[in-house]
């Protein structure tokens, strides 16, 4: 199937992936628009609400995701050279770092529930202001939607590692498959790179 024109096949695959990623960007774009509107309308309240978040935990989670992106980039490089062990190691390292991100995020949600910061677990009167409540609604929706994407990404990375390990994906011919999953993972990382300052670092 891929024998006729592999480079054209690769271009088509990547282009389809980029179109999907564009739709993901627009999905999160709506949330970024909400963040922008909230900040323009209620700058003081939003900054006060943001200061109550654990920015150190957010930074640690950023380190985990950035490092996982490095692992995926190394896996793609290994896949293109036909190195099975390197590819599997990179993919598994990235999946493990993704799990670490989710564990830290869950612990953070737990702290926020105890501190009466997380909507759905906190009565409306407990928030400092209606704007702070809105901001925390945005925080919960945006980080939960992102966590769903991380979960899907971890499953994709682990599944891919398994198939490469079993040789049901033969490298380097199947390197495009590794590349496509890598693109998805990098985008999930890029979205977090913007969510982190927009949610945690409003001053």
């Amino acid at each position: 199937m891929a024998d006729a024109a592999p480079s054209r096949q690769r271009d088509t695959t990547l282009m389809g992936m980029y179109l999907f990623l564009a739709s993901e960007i627009m999905l999160f774009g709506g949330l970024f628009a909400v963040a922008l509107a909230l900040r323009l309308l209620h700058p003081q309240e939003v900054a006060a609400a943001s200061r109550r978040l654990h920015y150190g935990i957010g930074a640690a989670n950023t380190v985990l995701l950035l490092t996982s992106s490095l692992a995926v980039a190394l896996a793609v490089a290994a896949a293109e050279m036909g190195k099975v062990k390197g590819t599997v190691a990179g993919l598994l390292a990235a999946a493990g770092l993704g799990l670490g991100f989710l564990a830290l995020k869950a612990a953070e949600y737990g702290m926020e529930i105890r501190e009466q910061l997380l909507p759905a677990f906190t009565p409306a009167e407990a928030f400092d202001s209606p704007a702070a409540h809105l901001f925390m609604d945005l925080y919960l929706v945006a980080t939960a939607l992102h966590a769903v994407h991380v979960t899907v990404g971890v499953a994709l990375l682990a599944g891919l590692a398994w198939r490469v390990h079993r040789r049901s994906l033969a490298l380097p011919r199947a390197a495009t498959g590794v590349e496509v999953v890598g693109l998805y993972w990098h985008l999930v990382d890029v979205i977090w790179v913007f969510l982190y300052p927009i949610l945690y670092l409003v001053r």
Binding site: S69, L70, V72, A73, V76, E179, G182, L183, H186, L187, D189, V190, V193, F194, Y196, P197, I198
Partner: peptide, 15 residues
């Protein structure tokens, strides 16, 4: 700074 990070990831990691 976030844009600079995104550009690095897109340019090098996303190739």
């Amino acid at each position: 700074i976030a844009s600079a990070k995104a550009a690095l990831i897109a340019w090098v990691y996303m190739q």
